[in-house]
Computed example of a mutant assay.
Amino acid sequence: MWRMTKISMLPLLILLILNGCNAINANDNDIFQYKDSYVGDNSAVGNIVSQLPEGKHLNGFELKTNEEPYGIILNYQGIATGDYKKIAINNATFIFTLIHNVEWVTFNFNNEDNEEYNVTKEKLQKWYEKDLSEFTNVDDLNSFIQEYLQDDSKVNQYFEQ
């Protein structure tokens, strides 16, 4: 009887192990699965911006697709402290890398100063001196961005141009 129980438990154990592996893969949100999305794809844009830094503080977004150039307005609320300029550059870089036809992003930080930053794809690529569509994975893009964000004067330079 004991032997029969052990044999019948083996398939159950295998199913549990396989299901556990599958759950791990499902939670592995590789943001680059959305590469070459379009600004009109509300679901893809929502998934992208929610995975970016401060995504948990995103208080809605608007897709501007009625006329070119197409853009996105992101509204953040509840970010306690932070360098909003760096958040804007970082998140815009990901958005321009992943979303094929977006040309501008406006970041509204509903903090005590109600800061707003506008980032355009053309200006950001000139600042980086690189075509952002060439990136194919998160690690390379993060490393690239961090090189530029380390220098506060360079960050401020982008917004002063």
Rank of each mutant, 00 (worst) to 15 (best):
F144G: 00
I87G: 04
D28T: 15
N114H: 07
C21I: 15
N47W: 02
V105W: 02
Q146P: 00
Y117H: 04
R3Q: 06
M4R: 01
S43Q: 12
S50V: 07
A26F: 09
I72Y: 09
V105K: 03
P69K: 11
K154M: 09
K86R: 14
L58S: 11
S133R: 05
D83C: 12
E134I: 11
V105P: 04
N101G: 11
N156W: 00
V49N: 08
T106K: 12
Y34V: 06
Q150D: 14
D30R: 08
A23C: 06
Y84W: 12
K85V: 14
I17F: 15
G46S: 12
T5G: 00
T136F: 00
E116M: 10
V45L: 07
P11T: 13
M1G: 14
I145K: 01
A80G: 15
S8M: 10
L10A: 13
F159I: 11
K121E: 12
V45Q: 03
I145L: 03
M9V: 05
S50C: 07
N101R: 01
A26I: 14
V105Y: 06
I95N: 07
N59P: 02
V102D: 02
D140N: 08
F107D: 04
F144S: 07
D30I: 12
A26C: 05
V138F: 03
L74K: 07
V49Q: 02
E62D: 11
Y34E: 13
V102Q: 04
W2E: 12
I79Q: 11
F94K: 02
A44L: 07
I48T: 04
L132I: 09
K56C: 09
W104E: 12
T136M: 00
L141G: 07
Y34K: 04
K121T: 10
I95H: 02
E116G: 01
T65D: 09
L16D: 00
A80W: 08
L13I: 14
L132K: 01
L12Q: 03
G60E: 03
F159K: 10
C21Q: 09
E68C: 07
Y128F: 09
D140Q: 07
Y148C: 02
N91V: 13
N108T: 05
S8T: 12
L149M: 14
F32D: 11
G46N: 12
D36F: 14
N19P: 00
D30Y: 08
L10M: 10
E68T: 15
V155E: 07
A88W: 03
L13E: 02
N142S: 08
F135K: 00
S50D: 06
I89E: 04
N110K: 04
Q157I: 10
L58Y: 09
N22D: 08
F107R: 00
T65Y: 05
N19R: 01
L149D: 09
V105H: 06
V45A: 05
G71H: 13
L132N: 02
S153E: 11
E54H: 03
T120R: 00
E112C: 00
D151I: 13
V39Y: 02
L74C: 07
D151G: 10
N75V: 05
A80L: 10
